[in-house]
Amino acid sequence: MSENIKNAAPQVHHFKKPKSGNQDHSVHQTTPYQVVSVIVLIIIAFLFTFPLYWIITGSFKSAQAVNARIPVWFPTEPVTANYVKLFEKPAFMWMFNTVFVCVMAMIFTCIAASMGGYALAKKKFTGRTIIFSIFVCAMALPKQVILIPLLKEMAFLKLHNTLWAVILPTVGWPFGVFLMKQFSENIPGELLEAAKIDGAGETRTFTQIVFPMIKPGIGALAIFTFINTWNDYFLQLIMLNSTEVLTISLGIAKLQSEMSTDYGLIMAGAALGSIPIIVIFLMFQKFFTRGITMGAVKG
C-alpha cells in the first residue's frame, strides 16, 4: 500500500512550493470538455467516499437494518448496540496497542532517520555513496518477502508476539533515511562551516542548527510513519497472535473471521480503526503531502 513510497527512479523536477501563483488559467474559456470532466469527477469523488459513509452509518444500524434485503441508506433510528458489543471485546486494548506501536515506531524512525539522512547528505565519509545506493535498492524490494526470516529472527530474539516485533522492522525500513536525506540536502554548507569555525561540536551542530532546519521534514516523516504503521496489516498479522497484543486492524480481521455476518459489529470495529487515523491525516494533511512529494524527488 501507500507505505511503499519507494524510489526506483527519477531525476526530478525542482521542488517548488506547489501552486505559486499560476492563476493564468483564469483567462481560459471553459470548454464543454472541462464541464463534463468536473461533473464526472464529482460523481467519482462521491463513490470514493461511499465506503467510509457505509462504515459509519453501518456501525449505527440495528441488526435488522443491516440484514434488510432493501438496504437502509441512512439509519433513521441509530443504535449504539454495535459499539457496546465491540467494547465487550478487548477493543480498548487493541487501540492502545495500535497507538503504542505507531508512536514508538514514529519516534525511533524520526531519530534514526534524521541522523542518518543528515550524515548521508552532509558528511563526506568514505562509502556513503554505496550505503545510499543500498538504501535505495532496498526500497524497491517487496517488504513482505522478508517476513519469513524476520519471524524467525524475532522468535530468536524472544520478541515474537510482542509489539516490538512490529516496531523494530518498521524503524529499519529505509524510506525514512531516504526522505530525511532529501530534506537535509537543503541545509547550506556555509552554515555548517560557520558553526564549525565557531567551535560547535558535531552534536551541538546537529541539535541546534540541523535539527531546526529539517523540522518540516521530520514532521512529514512522523505523520507518514504513524499512518503507515497503523495500516501495516501484513506485518502485524505475522508477528502478533495472542489476544493481548492484537492491534485494531487484527481485531477487525478477527471479528470478521469469527462472526462474519454481523456486519453492524464489524463496521463499528472498522469505524474505530479508521476514524482516528483519518482525523490525524486531515489535521496534518499538509505535512503528509509534502512527505509524499519529497519522497519522489531524487536529489
Partner: peptide, 19 residues
C-alpha cells in the same frame, strides 16, 4: 477524497467492501 481509501486502512476498506 481520493486519498481516503488509503488512510482508511486496508482492513477497514476490505470489510466494508465485503459487505
Amino acid at each position: 477524497i481520493f486519498y481516503l481509501p488509503v488512510v482508511t486502512g486496508s482492513v477497514a476498506v476490505t470489510v466494508v467492501w465485503k459487505w
